[in-house]
């Protein structure tokens, strides 16, 4: 989906923010329209998360599937790497020194 530039969206120069949309319930067995809206939003499977800029168009799309999604307003979209980093738990250990590092200076 081509993302319109922030200036075009906000003539009032309000800071651009995004909707974080999380698909909580699937549209299986619901009218095809709702499945179509999910597809248009880029939500292809349950537990998927997408970011869209705050516009009336996107709000209307979310409104159509409001029973299926969770929505938050965020300052910026997270990319895949950041999402993964947030999901990954701490390793439970830390490295004091690498093996062989004592000989590295010589």
């Amino acid at each position: 989906m081509p993302r319109p530039s922030p200036k075009a969206l906000n003539p009032l120069r309000a800071p651009q923010s995004y909707f974080r949309i999380y698909l909580r319930r699937s549209a299986i067995g619901l009218p095809a329209k709702q499945a179509g809206v999910l597809d248009a939003l880029g939500l292809r499977r349950r537990t998927a998360t997408v970011y869209h800029p705050v516009t009336p168009d996107v709000a209307g799309q979310i409104f159509r599937v409001k029973e299926l999604v969770d929505v938050e307003e965020v300052d910026r979209p997270l990319d895949k790497k950041e999402i993964k980093a947030r999901r990954t738990p701490a390793t439970g250990y830390y490295v004091e020194s690498r093996a062989g590092s004592a000989w590295a200076d010589e």
Binding site: L12, A14, V54, P56, A59, F63, K66, V71
Partner: peptide
């Protein structure tokens, strides 16, 4: 659902916008 609607409304209100629905 109330929360979703409130979030949409709040976000659009900041831009002084809304939708008919």
């Amino acid at each position: 659902v109330d929360d979703v609607v409130a979030t949409l409304d709040h976000a659009l209100a900041k831009l002084r916008m809304s939708t008919k629905k």
